[in-house]
C-alpha cells in the first residue's frame, strides 16, 4: 500500500485520476469501502447487541483501510463519491447484498481469509501499512470463522441457511485470486500461493462447521475478474446511488 511508482507526483488532476484507475491499490481500496458500506447497512438490525458492536467495528476498520489507500491515490471523497459504477474496481463478492446473517458472515469469511493472506504477503514485502491491516483482517476472519462454525454446526435451520450462503457466494470467490498487475508490492504478490492458502483455510473452516465445500466453479461466465474490470452486479448500482446521492447533490460543497 505504498504509493505506486507510476503516479505522477505533481501531475494534473486528470493524469492523476487516470493513474489512480490503473493503480493496483484501487481494487484493494474499493473492496474495503464497498464491504464497509454493506456492513454499515446492518446498523440497528443485528441479531444481538454484541454483533452491532462487532459489525460496526469491522466496518470501521475497513473504512479506515479504504481511506488510507485512497489518500495515496488522490482525494478520498472524489474517488468514493464521484466515480461511476464502471470505474469501481472492487470484486463482486463484496458488493453482494447482506442477505441474512449467515450470508454476511460467509461473505466476510471468504473475503477476510483472502485479505489476511494478501496483507500478510504485502507486510512481508515490507509494506508498513499492511502490517497493521493484517491484524485487522485476522480479527475479521477469526470473527467470521467462529460464526460460520457456530451457525453451520448449530440448528438444522442455521445449517441450511449457512450452506445456502456458501453455495450462493462460492462463484464470486475465484475473482479474489485474479492477479492485480502493477508495481510492487502488490505486483509482487504470489497469487497462486494465496489461492492455495485460502482454499486450505476455508476448507478447514467449512468442514469443522459440518458444511460441504461446493464443487461448483469459483467463477461464472461473467465473474472471473469482472469486478476488477468494472463489471458489477445489479445491486451494486443501487448501492452506489444511495451512497453517492447526497454528496453529488451539492457539487463542490464541503462537509
Amino acid at each position: 500500500m505504498t504509493r505506486s511508482q507510476d503516479t505522477p507526483a505533481g501531475g494534473g488532476a486528470a493524469t492523476r485520476a487516470e493513474a489512480a484507475l490503473d493503480s493496483p491499490l484501487l481494487p484493494l481500496a474499493d473492496d474495503a469501502l464497498v464491504l464497509s458500506h454493506r456492513l454499515g447497512e446492518w446498523a440497528g438490525h443485528a441479531p444481538v447487541l454484541e454483533e452491532e458492536l462487532a459489525l460496526a467495528n469491522i466496518a470501521l476498520d475497513l473504512l479506515g483501510q479504504a481511506r488510507v489507500l485512497y489518500s495515496q491515490l488522490g482525494d478520498e471523497d472524489e474517488l468514493a463519491f464521484l466515480r461511476e459504477e464502471r470505474s469501481f474496481r472492487n470484486c463482486q463478492l463484496v458488493e453482494q447484498p447482506n442477505g441474512d446473517f449467515a450470508c454476511t458472515m460467509v461473505r466476510q469469511l471468504f473475503f477476510s481469509a483472502c485479505q489476511e493472506l494478501l496483507f500478510g504477503q504485502l507486510a512481508e514485502l515490507g509494506d508498513p501499512l499492511a502490517s497493521k491491516a493484517v491484524k485487522e483482517a485476522e480479527y475479521h476472519r477469526d470473527h467470521a470463522e467462529h460464526w460460520t462454525i457456530r451457525l453451520g454446526d448449530g440448528t438444522e435451520e442455521s445449517h441450511a441457511r449457512t450452506q445456502r450462503a456458501v453455495d450462493g457466494l462460492w462463484r464470486y470467490t475465484g475473482e479474489l485470486f485474479e492477479p492485480l498487475p502493477g508495481p510492487a508490492p502488490v505486483g509482487a504478490v504470489d497469487w497462486a500461493a494465496l489461492r492455495a492458502g485460502w482454499t486450505e483455510r476455508v476448507t478447514r473452516v467449512l468442514t469443522s462447521a459440518t458444511l460441504t465445500v461446493p464443487d461448483s466453479p469459483q467463477s461464472g461466465a461473467w465473474a472471473a475478474g469482472a469486478g476488477r474490470q468494472g463489471l458489477h452486479t445489479e445491486p451494486f448500482g443501487r448501492m452506489l446511488a444511495e451512497m453517492q446521492h447526497l454528496h453529488r447533490s451539492h457539487p463542490g460543497a464541503s462537509w
Binding site: 444511495e242 447526497l246 462537509w255
Partner: peptide
C-alpha cells in the same frame, strides 16, 4: 449509508 464524506461516515458509524 448516505453520509456525504468518508470522514463523516466513519464518525457516524
Amino acid at each position: 449509508t448516505r453520509a456525504p464524506s468518508l470522514r463523516r461516515k466513519a464518525i457516524l458509524m
